[in-house]
Design a protein around this nucleic acid. Structure first.
Length: 565
RNA sequence: CGGGGUGUGGCGCAGUCUGGUUUAGCGCGCAGCGUUUGGGACGCUGAGGCCGGUGGUUCAAAUCCACUCACCCCGACCA
């Protein structure tokens, strides 16, 4: 491709909208262009990168036994209601009405569609296992798109679904995908880290995310430097240290005038915050829920949501709390009736806690579970934090940020049961299909690669997904054969199957070098009067500083080796 | 949805507080001509804007007021 003819233009200045490196460089390089919040066009260079990523994914999915299909973008809203995902996705669902006023949704993902389809054709155990995938555009009306391609509302995604006869089969499919994902990231030059994850709106049991560690990532990851444990904070567990306060003592009311927060109460009574119990109030699907957790810990709302099996969860407002007759600042589950109480398992981790007295300016000492109060649910709803103990070993958890470039789930039978997708086993018995689903965002991979591989001049693409392999800087001057030689080289390289960008513009050398750096093409070849004097061209790798003179008759072979070898 | 910010040629910005001095300016980019040619060259000429939109105040509005839309950031929320 000749740059003089290439659609798209590089920008010298950083667009005001962009503040992450990937966003800035992709826009400045003329690879993507924003149409609206979270909605982007891909220009030729960007589209080539995306398609290369797509092809790598396709190859790996096929190698793992996947079969490619294409599913509809338009999905009947009714179908989403059947599985409850209209509510699970809520406002994130793009909905529209057809001419007969029937509601439709733009597919945010395709579990329902594929389950119906698989159920239609895979009737017998002989048809299983099955791995079906597609690479397609998805729509989610994100509350806040951000970071260029990192969080968008319309995005390209590979989604594969596995169908097995039993859990053991699902385990095999899951492991196959783990490996296939690893292969994809490796080939894209992306260091990824597998972490435990919450399954969110997709549902299901086990779930893992693939994270690229990057400071602009929007997820927080907790990991243990001493073992392999790593998890999204949404899911992360940690060891809650035991509080040894001796044998349970009789409860005792104490006056705590003006003391409101845990910090104040603990300070006033001269006990550590970990020796207190904190009450927090949520509205889960319209109902007040009383949440109890040890004073030094925070509630993880995702864990809470999962424990309550709620679809809508939010903190109660102050008026709601007062309305419910709760004494904010001194509330406790002791002697309280009429609320659903959910307690973090930390309440069982010690004895003789200080809790609210359900009267203003009053707290109670020596509260013990379950002697003095009971909870409807006791489970882990605490937020793990950096510095906490690793749940798997003696290590201490460390925090970092990451970009989620893939997410895989063991779904089990959630969808197949609701949608009636079943198969007949050897004995002629009917069973629901056992499913897994595996998503991967192409645009995010692209953005993550740029986040990881760039310098202050621009992008440094890995060869595997670079829009072109070679950038020819043609520094022509009248009366020299530079353009002839550059053209010739361009022809020869192209004929050899190498993808070449020829900078044939009438621009000064500085402009060309800077654009070459910005675009991030792996190999740069400069043809100039100076190099031709020595019957050579200058060769440079984008990732390195060294310049190298290469004889004209050797450069094609050299590049062939680098590109094909 | 809450908080903050920004909307002025393709891009980056100044002008807005204190209305008139503006025929709305600067840099980049763009077009033409000439000179240049190894890290974002130079000169000359030129095209391109109803100052996000609507309504108001005023003799007079990019500038003041009201409403509204869009985009960005933080949070909430969410793959």
């Amino acid at each position: 491709m000749r740059i003089s003819k290439l659609f798209g233009k590089t920008l010298r200045e950083i667009p005001a909208e962009a503040d992450t490196p990937s966003h800035q460089f992709l826009v400045r390089a003329g690879m993507i262009n924003q149409l609206s919040a979270g909605i982007y066009s891909y220009l030729p260079l960007g589209w080539r990168v995306l398609r290369k990523i797509e092809n790598i994914i396709r190859e790996e999915m096929n190698a793992a036994g996947g079969q490619e299909v294409n599913l509809p973008v338009l999905q009947p809203y009714e179908m989403l209601q059947l599985t409850g995902r209209d509510r699970a996705y809520g406002k994130s669902l793009f909905t529209l009405y057809d001419r007969r006023e029937r509601p439709l949704a733009l597919g945010p993902t395709h579990e329902e569609v594929i389950t119906k389809l698989a159920g239609h054709y895979a009737r017998s155990y002989r048809d299983l296992p099955l791995l079906i995938y597609q690479i397609q555009v998805k729509f989610r009306d994100e509350p806040r798109p951000r970071g260029g391609l990192i969080r968008v509302r319309e995005f390209h995604m590979k989604d594969l679904y596995s169908f097995d006869i039993d859990e053991a089969g699902l385990d095999i499919s899951y492991r196959k995908m783990l490996q296939a994902y690893q292969n994809v990231y490796d080939r894209c030059g992306l260091p990824s880290r597998l972490v435990e994850a919450d399954s969110g709106a997709i549902g299901g049991k086990d779930s893992n995310e693939f994270m690229v560690i990057a400071e602009n990532g929007e997820d927080e990851i907790l990991y243990c430097p001493d073992c392999t444990y790593a998890a999204n904070v949404e899911k992360a567990e940690s060891v809650k240290e035991k509080i040894d306060n001796g044998e349970p003592l009789p409860v005792e009311e104490v006056a705590t005038p003006g003391m409101w927060s845990i910090e104040q109460v603990a300070g006033f009574l001269k006990v550590p915050e970990s020796h207190t119990l904190k009450a927090v109030f949520y509205i889960a699907d319209g109902k007040m829920v009383f949440v109890v957790i040890r004073g030094d810990l925070e509630v993880n709302e995702i864990k809470l949501n999962n424990a309550l099996k709620a679809t809508e969860l939010r903190m109660a407002t102050e008026p709601e709390v007062i309305e419910a007759g709760i004494v904010a600042g001194a509330a406790s589950p002791v002697g309280l009736k009429g609320f659903k109480v959910i307690a973090d398992d930390s309440v069982t981790s010690g004895t003789n806690f200080v809790a609210g007295g359900n009267k203003h300016d009053t707290h109670i000492k020596n509260v013990n579970y379950p002697r003095d109060f009971k909870a409807d649910i006791v489970t882990d709803i605490g937020l793990a934090r950096a510095g906490d103990k690793c749940p798997r070993c003696d290590g201490v958890l460390t925090s970092t940020r990451g970009i989620e470039v893939g997410h895989i789930f063991k779904l089990g039978t959630v969808y197949s049961e609701k949608l009636g997708a079943s198969f007949i086993d050897e004995k002629g018995e009917l069973h629901p299909l056992i499913m897994g689903c595996y998503g991967m965002g192409l645009g995010r991979i692209m953005a993550a690669v740029v986040e990881i591989n760039h310098d202050d001049k621009g992008i440094i693409w890995p060869l595997s997904i670079a829009p072109y392999h070679v950038y020819i800087c043609m520094l022509s001057r009248e009366g020299t054969p530079v353009s002839e030689e550059a053209e010739k080289l361009y022809e020869e390289l192209t004929a050899a199957g190498i993808e070449v960008l020829l900078d044939d513009r009438e621009e000064s050398p500085g402009v060309k070098f800077n654009d070459a750096d910005l675009l991030g093409i792996p190999f740069r070849v400069t043809v100039s009067p100076r190099t031709l004097e020595k019957n050579s061209v200058e060769f440079k790798k984008r990732s390195e500083k060294e310049l190298q003179l290469v004889p004209l008759d050797k450069i094609v072979a050299k590049l062939q080796d680098l590109v094909k070898g």
